[in-house]
């Protein structure tokens, strides 16, 4: 990864000095231990700020919607798939962006680090190839990166960007796995159990809308929950309304969500609804043979139809 970070900086510097792009959206070191954050680089000599590591958790394609000029963007596998979606949905123009693809072995979930720390404050963290060292007042511990990966990353089958203008480093092998085993397992539970799960999770929601705002697919100029006439659903954290908010968000992103996991990573209340998004992803794949964000040609599944689409559910 160290090697890739070096390549990334070089590539970025060249792009800016050659005036191929006006700005590069990437990651820089954050102000907290083990954190990175989005950065906007406009000068070649600032490219040394760029970092690439397992803590680059944000989906940067979010910023394409408002970016001006020609934009270079650092894209992991999931980010690249989001970008494909945005191009397809005409939110950005392919020719306006330069994709710097980075193969991604998975991103560390800071909530899992927090769980490991059990209430202790992290003062310093160091990442190596397979481990992270966590340091604080009176402790120093090692943790395996594998165990800290975000749940979306553990079932990711698109670690390499599907679309890029330049690729940093070499492609990494894509794992073969049953991506949806967790969905199957969850489906086998009773109605009541599933209902209780979703109620419990959404009961913590404080309606800060971080999940929506961080999501590259949520770009409606006005969200349905903010509409005033008609007011579709309530705006308070009433259990029914929060549940509906999250459900409709899943419906709106069905066939568009790439399971990048950003919504769950940003949630300050640890609301975990990945399974719902994955269910929609699985349905779209099984019913319409569509894999989100993998090619620029195919129409988004919910914007089209086939005359012989499955319809067993219709009387």
């Amino acid at each position: 990864m160290q090697e890739n970070q070096k390549h990334l900086r070089e590539a970025a510097e060249k792009l800016l000095s050659d005036k191929k792009v006006d700005v590069i959206i990437g990651y820089e070191r954050g102000t907290l231990p083990l954190r990175t954050r989005p950065v906007f680089i406009r000068e070649p000599d600032e490219t040394k700020k760029l970092v690439w590591n397992s803590r680059c958790e944000n989906n940067l394609s979010f910023y394409l919607k408002t970016a001006k000029g020609k934009v270079g963007i650092v894209a992991k596998g999931c980010d690249a798939r989001s970008i494909v979606g945005l191009i397809k949905e005409r939110q950005v123009k392919r020719e306006d962006i330069f994709i710097i693809g980075v193969p991604c072995p998975g991103i560390i979930d800071r909530k899992k680090i927090e769980d490991t720390l059990e209430g202790r404050d992290l003062q310093e963290g160091v990442e190596s190839d397979s481990q992270v060292i966590l340091k604080g007042e009176g402790f120093e511990e090692k943790a395996d990166k594998d165990k800290l990966l975000h749940s979306s990353c553990t079932t990711c089958t698109h670690r390499n960007p599907v679309l890029y203008d330049t690729l940093i480093g070499k492609e990494i092998p894509e794992p073969k796995m049953d991506e949806y085993s967790d969905v199957e397992e969850f489906s086998s539970k009773k109605d009541n159990e599933r209902w209780t799960y979703f109620n419990d999770e959404t009961s913590r929601c404080i309606r800060c809308y971080a999940c929506r705002n961080a999501c590259p697919s949520c770009y409606c100029p006005q969200c349905f929950v903010d509409q005033s006439l008609p007011t579709w659903f309530g705006r308070t954290p009433h259990p029914s309304d929060t549940l509906i908010f999250h459900m409709i968000r899943t419906l709106h992103t069905a066939g568009r969500c790439v399971d990048c996991g950003t919504c769950s990573r940003v949630c300050p209340m640890n609301v975990e609804l990945q399974i719902l998004n994955k269910k929609a992803e699985k349905d779209v794949k099984e019913l319409y043979g569509y894999e989100v964000g993998t090619n620029l040609e195919e129409l988004p599944p919910m914007a089209t139809f086939k005359i012989d689409d499955p319809q067993e559910f219709i009387k």
Partner: peptide
């Protein structure tokens, strides 16, 4: 403001933020 997502985490988790809306349900 560049990197701001426009969510309300900073204000909702803030100790002192106290803005509110009155609304009918």
């Amino acid at each position: 403001h560049q990197r701001c997502l426009g969510c309300a985490i900073c204000t909702y988790l803030c100790s002192t933020c106290h803005c509110f809306a009155l609304l009918d349900e």
